[in-house]
Nucleic acid binder design. Structure first.
Lengths: 165, 165
DNA sequence: AGTGAAACGACCGTAGA
DNA sequence: TCTACGGTCGTTTCACT
């Protein structure tokens, strides 16, 4: 095989991507179905011993390729109103992004190229909360020129990725 | 035991939202930090026995309030180009959403109100892949009138849960 | 809904091909 | 990087509160 990229350094932000073999992909798929599945059971599914699965999961986690975490459903918790908000910004976009990130109702912030400078996803209990969030918090941030709100009608597909640094 | 095959859909439609007490919130927080943390350890942290923690986690999961899953980092896997795509659609938006959902590179699809009918997040390896995805797959879907692409410059914040704060 | 106890199974470190 | 194995700890079931 080629030089094995055995990086034991735990999650360096600038580390290069690693190519996953079929087995690691299969392990990740197992954990995407159920993050609590036992290593032994995963091993049976992918044809590896329990210890080997454990080692690979540990390496994938330490390398920052994958994480096992709990995710919650806003709807089930009474947050009935979600929306994506496109923002046009003057000046420094990162400053606006940081302000947005401090708002608990804002769960997703990304700087973009295009007719919006920033996209932010928000989670609210109802329309009144959304209005207040927009007027009192988001549109009050210095540098925010305008917002356009895309109220969610139905979330159709969601696959959990992760990449915040 | 209980036949509970619910891996395909994270939502359980029709069920009412439930109010979480402080203990369940604490349990969810523990699993947010590490989805593989043992019930015993969580029990010590929240002041409950292992069996009690396990029961609550099982109920929260079955109710669709929470899921423990693996999330991956596209960047670490060589997917350097992410974008949000706003679509204008003629006719049935759900049909377009379903087509979009079948594309593996599309990890997020939501029907919206506003100047876009559908928002879709995509994950690509590079710009060429993005161009091909747009032209050959997305803009080829029947009913898609136009697309606007917001290329991600930097993902600034991403949360997987909202109800526990 | 919670606890406690005992049987069982999973997890972890170490050794070795 | 994997398997094998033994000690330890977590999970499961059940009887009880």
């Amino acid at each position: 095989m080629n030089a094995a990229p055995t990086n034991s350094s735990p999650r360096s932000p600038g580390s290069r991507p690693q190519q996953l073999d079929a087995v690691s992909k299969a392990i990740i798929e197992q954990l995407q179905e159920d993050g609590r599945r036992s290593y032994a059971e995963i091993g049976k599914a992918v044809g590896l011993s329990e210890a080997a699965v454990r080692q690979r999961v540990q390496k994938l986690t330490e390398a920052g390729v994958m994480q096992v975490v709990a995710v919650t459903d806003p709807m089930q918790l009474g947050f009935y109103r979600q929306a994506m908000i496109g923002l046009k910004v003057t000046g420094d976009t990162t400053a606006v992004a940081e302000e947005l990130g401090r708002i608990p109702s804002v769960d997703y912030v990304v700087l973009t190229a295009g007719s919006f400078d920033v996209l932010a996803e928000v989670v609210c209990e109802n329309d009144d909360d959304l209005i207040e969030l927009l007027n009192k918090r988001i549109r009050a941030i210095e540098g925010v020129l305008s917002t356009e709100t895309f109220v969610y009608l139905r979330l159709h597909k969601q696959f959990y990725n992760w990449g915040t640094r």
